[in-house]
């Protein structure tokens, strides 16, 4: 992998350097499928870049990392360009200073690849209305992560108010294996569900979403309760016909599924690294209506 540093630079210089690098490597136009813009700070930059480059293995992309630095300094943009074997695409780390921190979009938009989707990801703090954010506006898909918010519950509810098609949250993505398992269990009719409980470590961002989804889809009251963790530990649904359908996971890896009249079974249900979550997000770029309905339901319930 080679790294190139451009200090006090502009978008056109970065663009020219990228083109030059690609030509000199003998790959003038490799099939990149999207531009991924990551808005983060110096603290979570390392993890975000790592996850994004790993996800890029499945979805070759140009990855633009925007890091805002001291706004009191004179306006300046520094770029660090990484190309090479480790990533199928290209990575540009942009460090912005001074007034430019408020106009990051002016650096980003000339660097977007033409006519292919743009995805914006905030691994840390995110704007309340991602679609109205200057950088968020550039994306057709905007990924937030409620896990990073101090009050995940509140963050998710506010997402409902600012929802625009294309918004999604990694707290929702983390639920896919759980939802998939529960949906598979319901492939065999269960009849009505009287109520349920989702248990998770205190403050878990995904638990209220799962409860909201279940309660919305099953038209039943589903509560969230605290457990010792780690993460989500159990879902218990009380069936109207008697008995419980339960999924329990104590070790964040292997779960047991039990339901009335059937043997208890173990199912792999491991937590997934961020790169995998991101790859799942990038797989489908159409609006996630089910996510929308779930956050809306969550907001309505708590009103």
């Amino acid at each position: 992998m080679s790294t190139f540093n451009l200090t006090d630079t502009t978008a056109s210089k970065i663009s020219a350097t990228l083109t030059k690098l690609r030509h000199s490597m003998g790959a003038p136009a490799i099939g990149m499928v999207l531009t991924l813009v990551v808005v983060c700070d110096e603290g979570n930059q390392y993890d975000a870049v790592k996850a994004a480059t790993e996800a890029a293995r499945e979805h070759p992309s140009r990855i633009l990392i925007v890091i805002n630095r001291d706004p009191r300094e004179p306006s300046r943009a520094d770029a660090e360009i990484r190309v090479g074997e480790a990533t199928p695409g290209e990575v540009v780390l942009l460090r912005l200073y001074g007034e430019l921190t408020k106009h990051a979009d002016s650096v980003i938009s000339p660097l977007l690849l033409t006519d292919i989707p743009v995805v914006v990801w905030w691994p840390g703090g995110a704007p309340a209305k991602p679609a109205e954010d200057a950088i968020g506006k550039l994306g057709s898909r905007r990924i937030t992560d409620a896990l990073a918010a101090t009050d995940a519950d509140k963050a998710l509810r506010s997402r409902s108010a600012g929802y625009t098609p294309g918004d999604t949250d990694l707290a929702w993505t983390r639920l896919t294996p759980w939802r998939s398992l529960l949906a598979a269990a319901f492939d065999q009719p269960m009849g009505k569900v009287a109520g349920g409980v989702v248990e998770a470590a205190s403050g878990n961002a995904s638990a209220p979403l799962l409860a909201a989804w279940l309660s919305y889809r099953l038209k039943a009251d589903v509560k969230v309760e605290d457990s010792a963790g780690p993460g989500l530990t159990s879902v218990r649904l009380t069936l109207a016909s008697g008995g419980d359908l339960t999924v329990e996971r104590g070790d964040a890896r292997l779960a047991t599924l039990s339901r009335p009249g059937q043997p208890t079974r173990r199912v792999a249900l491991a937590r997934r690294p961020t790169a995998e979550l991101l790859a799942e997000e990038l797989r489908r770029l159409d609006p996630d209506d089910v996510y929308h309905e779930t956050v809306r339901h969550m907001a309505e319930q708590s009103r």
Binding site: T173, T176, R179, S180, L182, A183, A184, F186, D187, Q188, P189, L214, R217, L218, K219, E280, R284, D286, D288, D289, V290
Partner: peptide, 30 residues
Amino acid sequence: AVAATATTMDVVAANPLRDPRDKRLPRVAG
């Protein structure tokens, strides 16, 4: 309960947790 064993079209229709728009959920064998 026994007839419906995999994620077929009828099952999707009958399953409250499934939704054709919910593309994250994979087709699963029964």
